[in-house]
Deep mutational scan, measured.
Amino acid sequence: MTSCHIAEEHIQKVAIFGGTHGNELTGVFLVKHWLENGAEIQRTGLEVKPFITNPRAVKKCTRYIDCDLNRIFDLENLGKKMSEDLPYEVRRAQEINHLFGPKDSEDSYDIIFDLHNTTSNMGCTLILEDSRNNFLIQMFHYIKTSLAPLPCYVYLIEHPSLKYATTRSIAKYPVGIEVGPQPQGVLRADILDQMRKMIKHALDFIHHFNEGKEFPPCAIEVYKIIEKVDYPRDENGEIAAIIHPNLQDQDWKPLHPGDPMFLTLDGKTIPLGGDCTVYPVFVNEAAYYEKKEAFAKTTKLTLNAKSIRCCLH
C-alpha cells in the first residue's frame, strides 16, 4: 500500500463567511444568496454554514464600524470581559468565536472560507496562513488546477512579526479568498463568478477527501510576504508620492531593483532599492491607505505537500 500522510479526520463542519468587511460585496451577495438557497454549497455528509460576519458594517456598506474585524481574533480580544464599552467588532468577534470556535479547541469548525474583495488587480487569490499544512496545500492545488487556465495565486502570510489574527483563524483550516479588482461597494459579475467557482472547487475537494480519495504528493507556487511598504510621506505625515503608473495593476509581476515604484507630484520617480527582485501584491489597495500600506513585497517559492487521505471509520 502506498505510504501517505493521513489527515486527522474527515471534514464535518464548514463555514463560509461574507461581510467580514461590509463594503466587499461579492461575499456579502453570495452568502445572502446561499442563506436563501444553499443547494449549490451542500455536499453529502458535510455541514456547510453561510454566515454574515459583520452585519452592521454590511448594512452601512462600510469596511467596519469601530475597528477591523479581520485583525482582532487574538486571545487578548477574544478574552476581554464582555461589555457595551467594547468596540462593536470586538464584541462581534467574541460572538463569532462562540459560534464557530472556540479558537484553538477541538470544537472549532474544521474549515472557514472568508470571502473578500480587493481594489487591487490580484485576480483569484487564496490566502494561506501555514506553509506546513498538507491538507490546505492539497486543497489549493486542486482549486488552482480546477480553475486553469484562469490564474489563481496563493498568498502566504506566515511571518515572524506580522500577526494578522484573522476572522477565519478560529477554524482548524483557515482559508482566505480574495478576488479583484473590484471597487468597494460595487458588485461585478465576473468577480462574483470567479469567487463562486473557487468555493465550488473547494467544496468538491472536501467531498472527494471525505469519500476516501487519496491525493498524491503535489507542489504549489506561493508568494510569501516579506514586508509592507508605506507611501513616501512629508514631515507632516502626508502622502508625498503615489503608486507609479508602471507599478499600478502589476500585482504578482516581478519588481526589480531600480524599477519605478512611486511618483511625486513634481514628476520624480522613486525606484525600488535593494538588490532583490520582489513580487508586489495589494498594490494601491483602497482599504490600506489608513493602514499606511502602499503594497506588500513578496518572494516566490514552492511548497510541497505529502499525499493525504481521509481516515475512514
Rank of each mutant, 00 (worst) to 15 (best):
G19Q: 02
M122G: 04
F135K: 00
T2E: 08
F73H: 11
K306M: 06
T20I: 03
G27N: 01
D204K: 00
Y279V: 04
E285S: 14
A296Q: 12
S131W: 06
P181E: 03
L69N: 07
A93I: 13
T26F: 01
H201R: 04
G258R: 10
P257Y: 02
I6G: 13
H244F: 00
M261Q: 06
V14G: 02
E211P: 01
L162Q: 07
I225C: 06
K32P: 02
I65C: 09
S83I: 11
Q194W: 12
I199N: 02
G273H: 07
L115R: 02
P50F: 02
E238M: 12
H10T: 08
H244Y: 02
H256F: 08
T264C: 12
I16E: 02
S108I: 15
D85K: 11
K49V: 13
K291P: 09
N70V: 07
A286F: 11
F295N: 01
M139V: 00
G45V: 03
L128I: 04
H159S: 12
F295C: 04
L255F: 09
K291L: 06
Q182N: 09
H98E: 11
P216S: 09
V175P: 02
I226D: 11
S3K: 12
V281A: 15
G22W: 13
V281E: 00
K197A: 15
D193T: 06
C152G: 01
I137F: 01
E9Y: 09
T302D: 05
N54S: 15
I11S: 04
S83M: 10
K13R: 10
T26R: 01
F215M: 05
P216D: 06
T44M: 07
K224C: 04
K103F: 14
G237W: 03
K306W: 06
R43W: 00
E8R: 07
M139K: 02
Q194P: 08
N134L: 06
M198W: 00
F135N: 00
Q138E: 01
T299W: 10
R92I: 14
P257S: 05
N246F: 12
C152T: 07
Y164R: 08
L247W: 02
K60Y: 14
H159T: 11
P280H: 02
R309E: 05
E36L: 15
H98V: 13
K228H: 07
P181D: 00
H141T: 04
H207T: 11
V229Q: 11
E24Y: 06
R63P: 08
G101P: 09
T26C: 12
G237I: 01
E178H: 13
A148C: 09
L272K: 03
V31H: 00
I199R: 00
A57R: 04
N133P: 03
A287M: 06
F140I: 10
L136R: 00
I65A: 13
K80V: 07
G38Q: 10
A148K: 15
F215D: 00
G237F: 04
V283A: 02
G258C: 13
E47P: 06
A57E: 04
T119Y: 01
E221R: 03
T53W: 05
E211W: 07
G123E: 03
P87R: 13
R168D: 11
E8D: 10
G180A: 01
I52A: 03
N77M: 11
A240V: 11
F262P: 00
E95W: 14
I199T: 06
Q184A: 15
L126T: 01
V58R: 06
E24G: 05
A240S: 11
L69R: 08
V186Y: 02
A294W: 01
P160H: 07
G38R: 10
H141M: 03
P280E: 02
E293C: 09
G18S: 05
K13P: 02
I239E: 02
I143N: 00
E47K: 14
Y64C: 11
N54L: 04
G176D: 03
N133V: 04
E293N: 09
K213A: 13
G185M: 06
K297H: 06
A240N: 09
E214T: 08
H207E: 11
E24F: 01
V222C: 10
G258N: 07
Q250V: 03
A241L: 00
S83K: 06
G237Q: 09
P271L: 09
E95F: 15
E84K: 14
V154A: 06
T26D: 00
P102A: 10
P257D: 02
L265Q: 14
K144A: 13
L86T: 10
Y109D: 02
Y153H: 14
S169I: 04
N97P: 06
L136P: 01
L272Q: 09
V186P: 03
H5I: 10
H256M: 10
H256N: 13
I239F: 06
I96E: 11
T125G: 06
K213C: 13
A93K: 06
S120I: 01
S307I: 04
V154G: 02
N97D: 09
M195C: 14
S108W: 11
L30C: 05
C124W: 00
R43C: 04
E106Q: 08
A93V: 15
M82C: 07
L272W: 08
Y223F: 10
C152E: 01
D193W: 08
G176V: 10
N37M: 09
Q194C: 14
I11R: 05
Q12L: 07
E178N: 12
T167W: 09
Y155A: 15
L301H: 14
G22N: 07
P174N: 13
T119K: 00
I137D: 01
C124P: 11
V58A: 10
I308H: 03
K13L: 04
S3I: 09
